[in-house]
Amino acid sequence: MFRQSFRQLVRPVATRSLIATPRFTFPALSNVRFLATGSTLTKEDVLARSISVLKTFDIKQNADTITPQTEFIKDLGMDSLDYNDALVALEEEFDVVFDDNTANEIKSVGQTVDYILKNYLPAQELLDKEIR
């Protein structure tokens, strides 16, 4: 008798709570970051990602005001060592390598963005797909 009344008590509550709060919620699709298809890396993408990399450094200027014309040493208050750190961080972000002559001559954010766009290779699996 006890068992039966207990079941009656518990069952509706259990089913109701299961319906009300499903245990697994899937993240909204808009939160999932898809890989860019093909080699379509736009200038805006590169600039935005570069800025988010530069944000991790100790910079003089507000990161939101960085434009392609911003210069590392003059505007961001970096010295030559910080500037090289930033270049290596950008290399890691985009999987490119700045060749020595370019790296020693680059002054502005825009120049790095142009170099990255010119030298960026899409992820290997995308290249494979294109070949097939």
């Binding site: 030559s80 060592l81 090289n84 290596v88 020595d100 020693n104």
Partner: peptide
Amino acid sequence: RPQINTLYRSFIR
């Protein structure tokens, strides 16, 4: 100076 910058960059890389 560029040579030192290059050396430093290689170390960091």
